[in-house]
Each structure stands twice: as structure tokens, then as C-alpha cells.
Design a protein around this nucleic acid. Structure first.
Lengths: 213, 213
DNA sequence: ACTGCGTGTTACCGTAAGTAACAAGCAGGT
DNA sequence: ACCTGCTTGTTACTTACGGTAACACGCAGT
């Protein structure tokens, strides 16, 4: 009968796809995001056209690859956010989880955050096409959580989305810089960022004689 | 005499360089950051090798181009930060200046924020090579201002740097998302972000029955 | 006249993305 | 047995881009 046949086939190609993604992963981890399709195909023991059949084009492959890692990272962050403790502790745990992840595997992180652009550019320039997909997704995800757990009054939906993207951006930029310069311990960075979110910027005093801030 | 000669010549090549940069600017504004060296050369009415003589390689040209725009943007932000008013007003003015800039010229913004990577990758992967130069520079600049104007106690230097990069990242990510989705007016976005920096996240109440945040 | 230097060219190389076009294995139906 | 259709795989190609070599012109100053 052909229906279970079809299912077998479907599963087979999905397995194949998974294998290819794992090979691509190895190459990207080794060579960075600029890995060529040829190199990836070679690692998988095959040649280019098969990759193209499975993933359409390079950005397709990279999207699939990014999804895997993003899903994994999001899981980590969610469990950190769901720990049963005070809000500040949860926020710090989440920041820490993110920083731990990018510290442990900077190549993956670089790949996710600075992807090679699609560059099809269909019509003029579509701004939404040109942003790091991980950033956006994290932002939306955080926005959802904020919106459903915090009482932000009217306009809360909008506020939550702005905050979601803003916080994720803060975390990303600070993490990026920290990873490059290593100016302090991870725990320090987490504390500093939490302080910022907790309004210490607004509360700080001016330096006497300065034009003020 | 050769000394004034030398000066004339030097100025001449600098003028030429400026012309080339302006041509490159036009192309990048038209075609986006993926503009080819050929296209830029054509726009300037010349051919590739001259570009390479002036700028070394593509990333050299792009660095020069980015510097112009970054300088201009930084000027705007600085004057916004220097306005004589309450801290919150100044912060909002700065956010607004940034958002106005990226709104007015999204192509420039895209070029600055999502640059094509250097990818020489000398030794393994040097993380600091792979980040948007504008973000870093803005972060450092803001850190300097924060450090010199706010009294942050011991560790203030480090705190200021973390905050500088964090705030810039927040502004960037939120702006990026806002530019793509246009979920609200600019003024709204500014207010929301300022609220976040002013600690409203910490102060908000839990939704009753939620796992908390 | 010769030298030096900056401007400009054409023609080329290497590499990478992406695409035919074709070959082989393996179901199932007749 | 034979054909059909589908998936997997190949080789060989095109196109485009970054970058470079080699050469030619113009134009100061000695």
C-alpha cells in the first residue's frame, strides 16, 4: 500500500535532512558562517546539488540551521525565566543563561547573530529581511512572556513588545561586547545589566560640576 | 618648490577620495550594502582598480563610508544629550534623535548596522572583528559620557561601559524592530523605552494567577 | 630628455552560488 | 519481463564578484 510507503519516504527524507544539517553544523562550527556550500556538501559526503534540492538555497540551509539552535537556546531561556523565585533573580538567571550559552559556543552565536544576508532584495529594500532572525524571535518571545505575566495597564501589549525587543537588544549588544573584550566576570555583567533594568540609571546622582545626565 | 606641491597633491587625492565616497554613498543608498565594487566604480565613472588603490579593499571602502555617517549621527546624538533639561528629557531626546535618523534614511542605517563581514578571519575567529562597528562605537561613546557625568560609586567605570553598550543595544534592537513593523508612533516608542530604563519593569505588578515575572 | 607619480585602462585569476543534464537504483503496475 | 516514476547522486557549466597584474597616459620637477 502506498500511504505508509509515503510516510516511510517522508521520514526517510527528513532523516536525511537531519543528517545534512548535522554535517552543516560541524562545518559552520569549524569554519564559521562563511563556510561554502561545497565544504558543507563535502563534509556530508555528497555534492552541492543535493543540498540545493533539500534547502533551496544557502539562506534556506542557514535558516534551518539557525532554527535548531534558536529552539535550543529558547528552551534554556524559558526554563531560566520559569524558575520559582523573585523577579530580579529570574531576570538575572535568564541573562546568565544567555551569556553562558554564547560564551560556551561563540561560533554558533556568531552564526546566529551575524548571518549572511539573504540579499534577494526582491523589491527595493525590505528592512525586515535584513535583521538577525534570532534577535527578532527572542524579542517576540520575551514580549509574549512579559505581556502575559505583567500587569502593565492599558497599552500593555505594545509596551511589552517594545520592552521585549529592547531587553533582548540590550542583552545582545552587551554580550557581544563582553565576549570580545572580557572586561569582567559574567556575574558582574549580569548584575550590572539587572541594575540598569532596575532603574539605577534614573536614580544615580550627577557628578558635581558636570553638565548633567 | 615641492612642499606646497606635496600639499596640493595630498589635497587633490583627498578630494578625489571624497568624490569616490560620495559616489559609493549614492550606490549604497540605491542598491543597499550588497552593492558591488563594479557598480560603485561605474557610478564614479571609473573602474575597479582605482577604488582598490584608494581604499585597499572593500571593507576599507565600507569602513570609510561608515565613518562619515557614524560621525554625523554621533554629532546629532551628542547635541541631544547635551540639551539643558532634566535627565529623562535628555534621554528621550537622544532616543528620538536616533530613531529619527534611522527613520529618515533606513538604507544608510541598514548599511551601518549590518555590514558585510571582513572575513579575513586571520586566526581562528576573532569575535571582535565580527560586530557592527557603529554599535560598538556608539556604546563606547555613551559609556564615556555616562562615566563622566554620573556618580556611580566604585566600579563606576565598568558599570558605565556595560550600560553604554546595553542601552545602545536596546535602542538598536527596538529601533530595528520598530522600523520593520511600525507598531506605534515614534514618540510612543521613545516613551516606552525611557520607561524601561526608568525601572518600570521592576515596579510593575504581576498578573494575578500567572507564574510571576 | 628622463624620472617619478598619480590616474586610468583591459584582461585576467580564484572562488563561490546556483543550475542544467544526465545516470543509477528501486518501488509498483501492466 | 518491461516500462514508469521518483529519489539520489553525479559532472560540468554559467554567472558574478572580489581582487590583482600589467600596461598606458599625463604632467609636475630636475
Amino acid at each position: 500500500m502506498q500511504t505508509s510507503q509515503r510516510l516511510d519516504q517522508q521520514q526517510a527524507t527528513e532523516n536525511r535532512r537531519r543528517e545534512l544539517l548535522e554535517a552543516a553544523d560541524r562545518v559552520v562550527l569549524r569554519d564559521g558562517p562563511e563556510a561554502s556550500m561545497n565544504a558543507i556538501a563535502a563534509e556530508a559526503g555528497i555534492t552541492k546539488p543535493i543540498l540545493y534540492r533539500h534547502f533551496g538555497d544557502k539562506s534556506g540551509l542557514y535558516r534551518a540551521l539557525a532554527k535548531r539552535h534558536t529552539d535550543a537556546l529558547l528552551d534554556n531561556l524559558r526554563t531560566a525565566l520559569d524558575s520559582r523565585s523573585a523577579r530580579r533573580d529570574r531576570v538575572e538567571a535568564t541573562l546568565d543563561a544567555y551569556l553562558t550559552a554564547i560564551e560556551a559556543r561563540p561560533q554558533v552565536y556568531r552564526f546566529l547573530m551575524h548571518p549572511t544576508e539573504d540579499a534577494d532584495a526582491e523589491k527595493g529594500f525590505d528592512t525586515r529581511r535584513y535583521s538577525a532572525p534570532l534577535l527578532r524571535r527572542l524579542g517576540e518571545e520575551l514580549a509574549k512572556i512579559i505581556a502575559e505575566r505583567l500587569d502593565l495597564g492599558p497599552n500593555g501589549e505594545e509596551l511589552a513588545r517594545v520592552w521585549g525587543h529592547g531587553i533582548v537588544g540590550m542583552m545582545h549588544a552587551a554580550g557581544d561586547w563582553w565576549l570580545a573584550e572580557r572586561p569582567c566576570e559574567r556575574g558582574q555583567l549580569v548584575a550590572h545589566l539587572a541594575d540598569l533594568l532596575w532603574g539605577r540609571l534614573a536614580a544615580a546622582g550627577d557628578v558635581p560640576g558636570s553638565p548633567g545626565f
